[in-house]
Design a protein around this nucleic acid. Structure first.
Length: 473
RNA sequence: CGGGGAUUGGCGCAAUUGGCUAGCGUGCAUGGUUUGGGACCAUGAGGUUGCAGGUUCGAAUCCUGUAUCCCCGACCA
């Protein structure tokens, strides 16, 4: 094997990750502490996530809008738990136009408060409900320790905010959003995630219930990959937002909010990448096919161009006829960039009207006749997408441990880590102690987790079902 | 924010009791030979050693401050 120009995933996940994100030109460190520059190749991933989700969001009747970046400090303070939860990580503007502001402005960490203030203005009766809006925007959370894509001071996301007349409608929306996230991870990113409800300690500041999708990373830590919050009537009451119902009584709208961020890109990189670099599932890959004519082969260049012309109509295809790099250099470069399929064309292939096709996930090569090319590519793209999802699902299952003793719990957390399925009495004291002793927190009560009598893995009190624990990212 | 490590041509690194013109690999430029898994030869350009002060005849090296990054913790999408 040729010597590597990137760090190895198999040796040090963190170093590999940081090195790869920069070298594959997904993102770079910025002059501003904790902030990153998302480069075109990385931003293309985000755009694909956006267009995938946006279609479903609109189908559900949720409309896109845009609210201000700045939130008056007093707004945030209206919901007590909300402000307490976010206070430590706020960026605050105190000066404007050279003058001290009479009221400080918060750079939004999330937009509940400013959006609901406007919703309040726009609605008078039950007929004005539901309100269903989403915004694609940036938010700022002053994190103390940052990590490209996974945790940066500023990040991009979508935040959906809906308000309904009934709790049932509200619940439907909360579940719909969670399903959308599951679909996005499964179908687009080929990442297997576990959905479920959060414990009280782990829920969103100000929420009634929080639901999340949790994905297991290669180092056995869990990535909270998307959240959907049932806010109940908490915010409406705090904001004194009521409308008149059919009987002329006060109705506090039921609300929900849900978000998925550029953090998902970090998960994508980590889950599928290997020692050779990125591995993108075909559905998300900015470039699905890279065509490499062997440099110096005249006939090959001609064939490669005509092949690319045809394939471009149907796939995200690109030709690399850049001179000055050898074939081997190009192979390594595009492997590092995670392109799902590489088509190699030399004079040898041109003579028999064929191309060599290599799939990135398994690195298997085959020679394919031009006549069969489209059919083969269609099948390979489907296979790669399915294979990557299957691999991650298997990894997650192989690293999910059903545990009944705290000793075993501790042992797993101090060795391989992973998802731990264990009984828990649902007291926050026990949860805090488990975290203190093992670093693991509850990730969620998985959807479809069946009832089962047992005793809390920590305190021995009765429990009705197993929760999912892991160290969080 | 606490503990540890780092910052030297674009990138990766070397250079101590403080001492000669700060080296090497890679990349870059030019010419030639090459091109099917990160090519080779020759020539050449590229540095006020993160930044700001200080000590000294003399600082990449010692001191103070500061910025940024990485790792481990607490906080978090």
């Amino acid at each position: 094997m040729a010597k590597k120009f990137i760090k190895l995933k198999s040796e040090d996940l963190s170093e590999w990750y940081n090195d790869l994100v920069v070298k594959a030109e997904l993102a770079d460190y910025s002059p501003v502490k904790g902030c990153m520059v998302i480069r075109p190749y990385g931003y293309a991933i985000w755009e694909r996530i956006q267009s995938f989700m946006d279609k479903f969001i609109k189908e559900k009747g949720v409309q896109n809008a845009y609210f201000p970046l700045f939130i008056p400090e007093s707004f945030l303070k209206k919901e007590k738990e909300h402000v307490a939860g976010f206070a430590p990580e706020l960026a605050v503007v105190t000066m404007g136009g050279g003058q001290e502001l009479t009221e400080k402005l918060i750079v939004r960490p999330t937009s509940e408060t400013i959006m609901y203030e406007m919703y309040k203005k726009w609605t008078q009766s039950w007929r004005d409900l539901p309100v269903k809006m989403n915004q694609w925007c940036n938010v700022v959370r002053w994190e103390q320790r940052t990590y490209l894509f996974l945790r940066t001071t500023e990040f991009l996301w979508q935040e959906g905010h809906c308000a309904h007349a009934t709790a049932a409608e509200n619940q439907d929306m909360v579940q719909w959003a969670l399903d959308l996230y599951k679909k996005t991870y499964t179908d687009l990113l080929a990442i297997y995630g576990v959905t479920g409800v959060k414990s009280d300690a782990e829920k969103f500041a100000g929420a009634g219930k929080t639901y999340s999708i949790e994905a297991l990373m290669p180092n056995g830590k869990a990535l909270q990959a998307g959240t959907s919050h049932d806010l109940g009537q908490n915010f409406a009451k705090s904001f004194d937002w009521s409308v008149q119902d059919q009987n002329g009584d006060k109705l506090y709208p039921y609300q929900n909010s849900w978000g998925l961020s550029t953090r998902s890109i970090g998960g994508l990189i980590m889950v599928h990448g290997d020692d050779n670099g990125l591995v993108f599932p075909p559905q998300i890959a900015p470039i699905q096919l890279i065509i490499v004519p062997i440099p110096g082969h005249e006939k090959a260049v001609k064939l490669a161009n005509s092949v690319n012309k045809n394939l471009k109509l149907k796939y995200r295809s690109q030709i690399d006829d850049f001179e000055g790099e050898t074939a081997g250099f190009k192979f390594n470069k595009w492997e590092m960039k995670g392109v799902p399929l590489r088509l190699e064309i030399g004079d040898k292939e041109a003579d028999i009207n064929s191309v060599v096709v290599l799939r990135r996930d398994t690195l298997e090569k085959q020679t394919v006749k031009i006549a069969d090319l489209e059919k083969t590519i269609d099948q390979l793209l489907i296979d790669i997408q399915a294979n990557l999802l299957q691999k991650h699902k298997k990894f997650t299952q192989d690293n999910t441990f059903s545990v009944d003793s705290f000793d075993e719990f501790k042992k797993i957390m101090s060795t391989t880590r992973g998802f731990i399925s264990a009984h828990w009495c649902e007291s926050s004291e026990c949860e805090a102690k488990i975290k203190e002793e093992t670093k693991a927190t509850t990730r969620c009560l998985p959807d479809g987790q069946k009832d089962e009598k047992g005793v809390c893995v920590h305190c021995g009190k009765p429990s009705n079902h197993r929760w999912l624990f892991a160290q969080s990212y």
